[in-house]
Design a protein around this nucleic acid. Sequence first.
DNA 1: GCTTGTCTCAATGTTAACATTCCTACATGC
DNA 2: GCATGTAGGAATGTTAACATTGAGACAAGC
Lengths: 216, 216
Amino acid sequence: MTLGPARRRGLSNEVADVIREAIFDGRYPPGAALREVELSEALEVSRGPVREALRSLEGEGLVRTEWHRGTTVTVLSSQDVAELDSLREALENLAVRRVVAADASLEAMADAAAAMDRASTPHEMVRCDIAFHDAVFAAADHSRLVQAWQAIRSQVHLFLITRVNVSTAGYLEQIRSEHRDLVAALRLGNVEGALKLFAEHRRHALDLLTVPDGAN
Amino acid sequence: MTLGPARRRGLSNEVADVIREAIFDGRYPPGAALREVELSEALEVSRGPVREALRSLEGEGLVRTEWHRGTTVTVLSSQDVAELDSLREALENLAVRRVVAADASLEAMADAAAAMDRASTPHEMVRCDIAFHDAVFAAADHSRLVQAWQAIRSQVHLFLITRVNVSTAGYLEQIRSEHRDLVAALRLGNVEGALKLFAEHRRHALDLLTVPDGAN
DNA sequence: GCTTGTCTCAATGTTAACATTCCTACATGC
DNA sequence: GCATGTAGGAATGTTAACATTGAGACAAGC
């Protein structure tokens, strides 16, 4: 019976999770101010852990803090989206190469892809989408690569939910089949083919979600 | 007359810088404990900013914190070094591609390479080495790429100084010419050629510095 | 009318005291 | 002798009060 390390987490982590979820739920839309006293009162903790949590979220790029001017939820410009896409490409390519090279288990990824069938709302689907790519990076067995992904993960999540609220048409259906294809490509072990599919996947998400408005 | 934003920095940043420099100076070798009270007394600040600074350094991978057990300077295993190298490759390739594609100014990089001639100790040389690669990433004009680089930058720095203390032979001379070649390759605008040179550069540093001991 | 100076207030930055946790060492029981 | 239980102490986690900063409103001067 293998059980993981039973490490305590500390209030800061808990608080960070709550705030993160609140942002993903849309309760704090991009640009909204995250006041320390407001949060500490709502969560019934002191400002210390809240401060640490906000710093942590800042590290994820989810919020932005300015000296003596407070922290706000990150607003993604079109340039930001472009940056996220290019960096994600570099990271994901490395992940795919390692997954194929090490012939890693694809079970977790297949599970994540399957979980999409149970998702009904666009909101849940985005969560599944992110979870799938989490599984890809996890399978790459490269802690710093996972860390680099986590540094932009929340921003990608933010991007997906803000855009998905604009146009949902076709998103839910297309996404499901795409991820199944990605798993299938990895099963075959063809690196170049898998890379190509992942590239197309990113491209589709970008095209589909970026069309509505031109600039920002 | 263009002058940058005159933003205040806050104590935490200052403290983080001081601690970081202390680590790079070898005053806190890998594995050493960084006690909050000790630091706060030495720097004549309260524990608050010290805590935030340590969290910041943890984000850079320079230190490691465990719940109720304090923070220590990161110890890099051979697997860590391998991870750093592969991730750095992915990031640096993207950076080089962007620098060439955008025909960015190479002045800062050339300056950094030239600064190496003035470095006498291995210690200073390592600083210049890192500064050069900082310039490469800066020229890529990609804030999140810079951020990803900064997340491993300190660890690469740590790796270089710990290994350089073991074998300095040939390091100082070889490094200088290598960086000059890198600038020259970028000047030519040949992407593939530049990528190859950067790969060799990483390989040399790894071979030269990794030989002394086998595993960790 | 536009700029400049001052005031006020709200929010963050900082501090120091209190609470909790974990490790070490020692004692106890078998 | 080995395992278990139990204090002691040192470190981090948390809290609440105090200090500092910056933005907006308003008035004075040109």
